[in-house]
Simulated assay, not measured.
Amino acid sequence: MGHNAGAAEPQPHYHGHRRRVRERVMRAGAEVLEDYELLELLLFYSIERIDTKPLAKRLLDRFGTLGDVFAAESVQLREFDIDQRTLVLFKASREAGRRLAERKVKDMPVLTNWQQLIDYCHAALAHEKTEQFRILFLDRKNVLIADEVQQRGTIDHTPVYPREVVKRALTLNAAALILVHNHPSGDPKPSREDIEMTKEIRKAAEALGISIHDHLVIGRKGHASFRSLGLLS
């Protein structure tokens, strides 16, 4: 008996699953999804011909959190046969998260929206693989004027030059600064170098009437505040 060319090809099992996941999101919202389900859903849009659930679970097992998956290096992701299309999706998803968090602190007095500021710093830095030193520049009402990456460094060191920090603050007419950097090791405890560097920046800034409100160190599972630790008193 010959093959019936007019017969419809059976749909792969994941087609029905994808439809059910989409319908669930439309019915109950994306917030009901587990992390692996949310990642699986995103992967629907970049990988067409496989069941993406096992891949989503493997990625989370390997990297830990959604943020870590999105921030993973290209060479690490290629171990999972992740193509360029998905790499771009991950980069875009991470940047979307950072910008959404930034919206909550931009043009608002940051000292009265402290938790949103911490959330933003985590979105920007918690999953970076190398040290990054950022400065939040504030006006006289403590409203965020700008957030800029001052320096990028290695896995455990970032060179910071107090003169450059103060020069940029004067250019932006900033009245105060919040210093922020990450510890890729995950432990946010300030190092001796962090403390010395902060003292130098504070000395240079305050000589020109610019306050240092805080220095935040961001780790994957938490943060440290110099002010809370009594290191700015």
Rank of each mutant, 00 (worst) to 15 (best):
2 G>F: 11
3 H>R: 13
3 H>P: 03
6 G>P: 08
6 G>F: 15
10 P>T: 10
11 Q>C: 09
14 Y>M: 07
18 R>W: 13
18 R>H: 13
22 R>M: 12
23 E>T: 12
25 V>G: 07
25 V>L: 12
26 M>W: 13
31 E>Y: 08
34 E>K: 15
35 D>T: 10
35 D>V: 08
37 E>Q: 15
39 L>C: 09
41 L>Y: 15
48 E>L: 11
49 R>M: 10
51 D>Y: 08
57 K>L: 13
58 R>G: 13
61 D>M: 12
61 D>K: 15
61 D>P: 06
61 D>N: 14
62 R>S: 14
63 F>H: 10
63 F>C: 09
76 Q>V: 07
76 Q>Y: 09
78 R>E: 14
79 E>I: 09
82 I>E: 09
82 I>L: 12
84 Q>G: 15
87 L>R: 06
88 V>G: 04
91 K>D: 13
93 S>K: 08
96 A>I: 11
96 A>T: 12
101 A>D: 04
102 E>Q: 13
104 K>M: 09
105 V>Q: 01
108 M>R: 14
110 V>P: 02
110 V>M: 05
110 V>F: 03
111 L>F: 03
117 L>R: 06
121 C>G: 08
121 C>N: 11
121 C>P: 03
122 H>A: 06
123 A>V: 04
124 A>W: 02
126 A>Y: 04
129 K>H: 11
133 F>N: 02
134 R>Y: 14
136 L>S: 02
140 R>W: 06
141 K>H: 13
144 L>H: 04
149 V>F: 00
150 Q>K: 07
151 Q>E: 09
152 R>A: 08
152 R>W: 00
153 G>D: 00
156 D>Q: 04
157 H>K: 03
159 P>W: 01
160 V>K: 01
161 Y>I: 11
161 Y>C: 05
162 P>Q: 01
165 V>K: 04
166 V>H: 03
167 K>Y: 08
167 K>I: 06
171 T>R: 14
172 L>V: 03
173 N>P: 00
174 A>L: 02
175 A>D: 15
179 L>Q: 05
180 V>A: 09
181 H>K: 04
182 N>I: 01
183 H>A: 00
187 D>M: 02
191 S>A: 01
191 S>Y: 01
201 I>D: 00
204 A>E: 14
207 A>D: 13
208 L>I: 03
209 G>P: 01
210 I>W: 02
210 I>T: 03
213 H>Q: 14
214 D>K: 05
214 D>P: 05
218 I>E: 00
218 I>V: 08
219 G>A: 00
219 G>I: 00
219 G>D: 00
220 R>Q: 11
223 H>T: 03
224 A>N: 06
224 A>I: 07
231 L>W: 06
232 L>D: 09
